[in-house]
Design a binder for these strands. Structure first.
Lengths: 214, 214
DNA sequence: GTCTATACACCGATAGAC
DNA sequence: GTCTATCGGTGTATAGAC
């Protein structure tokens, strides 16, 4: 009907400034730390005053919430893109999955803290923002099932193993490779425990992932 | 000499109020969350106004710093006390060490966040407060060496493994046992990877630790 | 030395004018 | 939608009472 409250291009413009705000928020978080994010600085970067942000987000937590969804969507996309590249051989596949998540988590501290560590005092992601994270975990279940890993406890163990390496890499050797170097060993150890078939072609095949200087 | 600035009982009294403040701080942290700790509330609990705390601590971070030291000293003491109880058999010893730290970390969220997670934005423990943590790690090195584990990478892997289980227990199943139930399996997997001798006495010996309903 | 009162700069959030 | 003004909260610096 005529006189509709919001036209299509108005909605698009609104979404545009929303993205601008989020983009500014990421920049601040990466520069000053996730917890040091302030509405006043975010607003300044998009040429606004702090209270104006409340026209686009209900609260500061709502901004964190949208960032949380973006971060997991980002990984979901990366996982989907590299999906065809996952090796078929079980152990190589596990190594690939471990490295993929490790590299992603180690590349951006603010993002990692938001996704995997409870850094923000009272923040809990909403159900909607949690959806991409759930889909990523579902996709992992499918991938592991293809390898023959279907037991929930086995999956939990794999997740905890990789997560532990990531956390300690950030906590004790940020920017280094001290814990990254343990990934292949950790995955092999895990694969042995699950009695996954050995690919005894030779000892020089290494992992099928594309790491450079490790 | 006479007219000394601080007498012995004055120093003792000073240390007493310091402990009172720290005790109040722990209570607030456990009740409202570690990051939600405010000087005004801590002060109120010891019958002071907020600025008065600055006679005893240089800053809020200094309080966190003292709490950090207390937390690790607490574990150091527990480790020392139970030192004689650590089984001699390598795999049982590993299980014992894993359970000991897991249980300690899972018992108190605020304490765990302070010790192992970087929850407070700008806080970094001072060298002095870090000392007990270093001693705990040194003691772990000694313990593992007695089992035959001396390689730094092996130790890192063990630490990351147990830490990963703790973090995921808190993050995804606080108060539950979903990740606790994986400890023995994880330790066995680790022990196998290191080719630790199997204690093939029987299959009913279980771990030598004193868990109840696991 | 120990504590208080006061003040300051900053924060997230709200109300209301335009 | 965006502004200004403001509120109640924070950590913390300082001056001064005792």
């Amino acid at each position: 009907m005529l006189g509709e409250a919001t036209t299509s291009w108005q909605a698009k413009r609104r979404e545009g400034t929303r993205q601008e705000i989020l983009s500014a928020a990421w920049a601040v978080a990466r520069q000053h730390g996730l917890a040091a994010l302030t509405l006043r600085e975010v607003a300044a970067r998009v040429g606004m005053r702090a209270p104006s942000l409340y026209s686009h987000f209900d609260s500061k937590h709502a901004i964190y919430d949208a960032m949380f969804e973006q971060a997991w969507s980002e990984y979901e996309e990366l996982a989907r893109e590299s999906d065809a590249t996952v090796p078929a051989e079980p152990r190589a596949a596990l190594r690939y999955l471990a490295w993929r998540f490790f590299d992603f988590s180690v590349a951006d501290l603010a993002r990692h803290q938001l996704m995997n560590v409870r850094t923000i005092p009272d923040f809990t992601p909403s159900a909607g923002s949690y959806a991409p994270a759930v889909r990523v975990l579902d996709a992992l279940h499918v991938r592991l099932a293809a390898i023959g890993i279907t037991d929930g406890a086995d999956i939990d163990l794999f997740v905890a193993l990789v997560g532990g390496l990531i956390d300690h890499q950030w906590a004790n050797d940020p920017g280094g490779t001290r814990w990254a170097r343990l990934i292949d060993r950790a995955v092999d150890m895990y694969a042995d425990a699950l009695h996954l078939p050995r690919s005894d072609i030779s000892s020089s095949d290494e992992s099928a992932t594309d790491q450079e200087e490790r």
